[in-house]
Amino acid sequence: MNTEDGKRMTPPRGSRGHDRNGGPAGGIRRALRAMDPEYERPGYWDRLRTSVMKRASLELARRRRLARVSVAAILSGWSRRLIPVAAAAAVVAAFLIGTEVRQASDASPPLLLEDILANEVGDGAFQAVISGQAPASPVAFMALVEGNVP
C-alpha cells in the first residue's frame, strides 16, 4: 500500500522469498493492489488518517486535561500531607533537642582513678577518691585538688 510519509510505498514489500519476478504469488500481489483504496484515490490514507485524528481530538484533549489535573492533584495531596507531618516533626525535634541540652548540662563526667593518677593530684584528693568521699560536684572536687578546701 502507499503511504503519506514515504513508508511502505508501492509495491508492497511482501515480495521477499516469493516469486520476486512476477510469479504466481507476485501476480496475486499485483491483483490485490486493486483492493488498496489508494490505488484508485491517491492521498486516501492521508485523508483517512486526518479523519481519524479529527475524531480523536476531543478524547486526546480530555486526556491532556486529565493528565494536568492528575499532576496538580498529586502535588496538592502531597503538600496537604507534608505540612502537618513537617509540623509534627519540628515539634518532636525541638523537644528532643531541649531534652538533650538539659541532660548535657546536668550530667557530671564520672571521675576515674586513672584520671586522678594521670593528673598527679595531691594526696588529699587521692585519698578522698579512694575512700569514696570525693565531692560529687566538679567545682568542689577541683577545689579539693587545688588544696582550697577550707
Partner: peptide, 9 residues
C-alpha cells in the same frame, strides 16, 4: 493474505 500481500508484512 491481505496483511502479507497487500500490506507487505
Amino acid at each position: 493474505v491481505l496483511l502479507h500481500d497487500l500490506e507487505g508484512w
